[in-house]
Design a protein around this nucleic acid. Structure first.
Lengths: 226, 226
DNA sequence: GCGGTACGTCACAGTTTGGTGACACAACCC
DNA sequence: GGGTTGTGTCACCAAACTGTGACGTACCGC
């Protein structure tokens, strides 16, 4: 299961690569940078779910990135450092970090800490569902594909949500007409098909070979993640 | 500065006393117990702000207390242990703990971790919220934009507060009518829209391209910081 | 390959929706 | 009372959305 969009900032290429690999193996989707400046740009542009910042960075350091992020946002932050100095920990946490982890760290432990923080951060926040690159936020009514927000019209969104509510199930047109359009419509209308097509055009990388919304000839449509 | 009602559970009397003393010195108000059973009773009865649980306890251990607490509540939990085993950490965090601290711990560090967790837990409950340039002071009922105070009428303020209470969530008009106007109004009234426009006119730098209050066509409005 | 059926595609006009400014009225305060 | 402020409503407009039907295409059993 893919979980979070993680921003990793670490200037040492070998550590960065190792952590990125480890986190990816844990099922996270990771983007990494070597500098604080890039990280801040990424945060503003892409809104990751959590940031893991090395404290020692050239230019803007991790603690400073953390401080600036805190002015904008509730983005959870984990600080990462080679030094386990108590004062560093206190300063880091005072800067607004949610956790402070001393390198070297076991990937399992880092993963558990990430999940603990995300659990806390998101418990009050919206419920979102992730299918590979596709993220559907039912609270914010936002759909993103590979981090890019997709605009769906109300009907399209209702249709997608209805399909997603029953992953793997085939939903026939009559059912969808009642659930999404809530009227007992003319049975043989191209309405559902047209709407499915519109949704596909927006969320399917290749609409002709859909990976999310599959046609089940003679029955209806099935949403199943790739 | 206001501090927390902390529940401390630790069976070793000398450690318990030392921690209690240290945390009290940091300005916290601490209640301590030696067993998990007592802790659960206290949590149910007294609703502390945060629990610090030793993992090794006679009877119900800290991890189990944590698990049970999590079924009830969002109460923040820090697990405390003499063992720094990776597996323990993972298990503890998976049980729902917000942090995992290995003894012996510097009081300053424990304090910083407590504050970091409370900061996040209380950010939703705090009196002042900042979204970029926009500062909303729920205690003083004052709104400032880039340092300049904005005058909002009572209804406008209630609407803004309601939206801000659910950042990122789409709130529909019916909900807002009940929450802000508290009457089950005529369903198709432009009341909400008009009020949103008025708030926008005051807090949005460019009301035509709002950055705080977004329209979600067909559903309602969403407050999300820029 | 063929006929028949089911589904995909498309453009467009009618409809819906929300933004906007004006306005009436109530409440409130000198 | 007279002015001021706050609030709900309305009419109008632009923009966005959506159902529809015609037509093209894929699929299936034979």
């Amino acid at each position: 299961m893919r979980v979070a969009g993680i921003l990793l900032v670490e200037d040492d290429p070998s550590v960065r690569t190792a952590l990125e690999l480890a986190l990816t193996r844990q099922g996270h989707s990771v983007t990494s940078y070597a500098t604080g400046e890039e990280a801040l740009d990424h945060i503003r542009a892409r809104r990751p779910e959590i940031a893991i910042l090395d404290v020692m960075l050239p230019g803007i350091d991790g603690v400073e990135v953390c401080r600036r992020v805190r002015k904008l946002d509730q983005l959870p932050v984990i600080l990462l450092t080679a030094r386990g100095d108590d004062l560093d920990i206190v300063v880091g946490l005072e800067a607004g970090a949610d956790d402070y982890v001393v390198k070297p760290v076991e990937p399992r432990v880092l993963d558990a800490r990430i999940r603990a923080i995300l659990r806390r951060a998101e418990s009050a926040a919206s419920d979102r569902i992730t299918f590979g690159d596709l993220v559907i936020d039912r609270g914010a009514l936002k759909v993103t594909l590979a981090g890019k927000e997709i605009h769906l019209t109300p009907t399209e969104l209702r249709l997608l949500l209805e399909l997603v509510r029953h992953p793997g199930q085939v939903l026939n047109r009559r059912y969808l007409l009642r659930a999404v359009w809530d009227h007992t419509h003319i049975a043989d209308s191209r309405l559902v098909d047209a709407c499915v097509q519109r949704v596909r055009a927006k969320i399917e990388p290749k609409p002709a070979e859909p990976v999310f919304i599959h046609t089940v000839r003679g029955f209806g449509y099935r949403f199943s993640p790739p």
